[in-house]
Design a protein around this nucleic acid. Structure first.
Lengths: 202, 202
DNA sequence: GTCTATATCCCGATAGAC
DNA sequence: GTCTATCGGGATATAGAC
């Protein structure tokens, strides 16, 4: 059964690549792109560095693969949301999901300034397609919620979208977690609350 | 007049150091700590790299000096605010100042993960003292505004303080600026509004 | 495809003349 | 204190055997 054998081999390869990407994801979340070294990734995965380069041609490609992974997860989460539910509920669910992923240490933090990394990401079809789809979906819900008078209609929808995206690198989460005074769930609710309702009294 | 001569020399030195720190500040804002190279700083200032090390003993010290500069500016701004003014007004003024500095490209962005840099900063008395003073001052205003029912009293004051600090690295500003659709002043007001009033409709 | 070993380069930091 | 020239370490990426 040569076909099955090939398929099995490919499956092993795919599993290994997933392990690599998962590792990169964690390291990116912990230390960021510049501080993460390829040696480190190889050590965590348990293979030689040279083997890594058989799967990914550069450090940037590694990071891009991690970003694609997270983007796919976001797409899957969004797709699983009921489309008939109120737009505002779905938006809050997405933001809560983002905060939970970040607090769990699974949200890669990329320096927005790194040019080589930006170039690699922009050239990555999977990533860009995912970004477009997520933006479209959230953008639709934002406008819907604004039309219903739930979200502030004076704000440009794009500003609200960016505000959501920015939750993926909000340092308030880490600050509060470092303080040790609050549980993760409390932190999520606090940040979620300030995001939608602000810090003013009502 | 030997004394005057020495004083003049020292003044030149101080001026040069200020030029260095200013340059570091801009580069940190543009590229971040890891991407910034010491060669680059030297080239921008117009002196040899070795000369830099006569003023600052390491790259971390350079970054710390830039952070101290910004902290001093924040302290000066806060000190200039009328203490008899409503606490909420002063808080908004500080946040607005922070957003303007960041948008102007004068807010150094430090990777919160870099351990050597964190250690250097924590060991820097000027920086830590400044941080304490700023935190105390803002913390007082926050509690005052909460007591008056202007800021949400259900939020821990520390969470509100962190939310303010986080504006110094809010990517929404760059995102909106990159889009080119809004003036800087508009961007500042939008972000300031979402910070205090959230994105929900009122 | 995986490994060991190495090439190559970049960057922080220093030596030493002036 | 400023310069030129250089060291030394560490990181990305590759060569070549298996």
């Amino acid at each position: 059964m040569p076909i099955a054998k090939i398929s099995f081999k490919q499956q092993m390869l795919k599993a290994r690549e997933e392990a690599i990407v998962q590792t990169v994801n964690r390291l990116l979340a912990e230390k960021g792109f510049e501080a993460m070294t390829v040696d480190e990734v190889a050590a965590h995965v348990g293979i030689a560095k040279a083997s890594l380069y058989k799967h990914f041609s550069s450090k940037e490609e590694l990071a891009a693969a991690a970003m694609v992974l997270v983007m796919r997860r976001a797409q899957a989460f969004i797709k699983a949301l009921p489309d008939h539910a109120p737009a505002l509920d779905n938006l809050k669910a997405v933001v809560r999901w983002t905060l939970e992923v970040k607090l769990a240490g699974d949200m890669p933090s990329l320096p927005s300034q790194n040019s080589t990394l930006r170039a690699t990401l922009m050239a990555n079809k999977d990533y860009m397609d995912g970004l477009m789809e997520v933006s479209d979906r959230l953008g639709g819900w934002i406008e819907s919620a604004q039309a219903k008078g739930q979200l502030n209609p004076d704000l440009p929808a794009i500003a609200i979208l960016y505000t959501f995206f920015a939750r993926a690198c909000d340092p308030v989460l880490e600050f509060l977690k470092m303080g040790g005074l609050y549980q993760d769930a409390q932190i999520v609710e606090m940040v979620l609350g300030t995001c939608f309702e602000g810090i003013n009294a009502r």
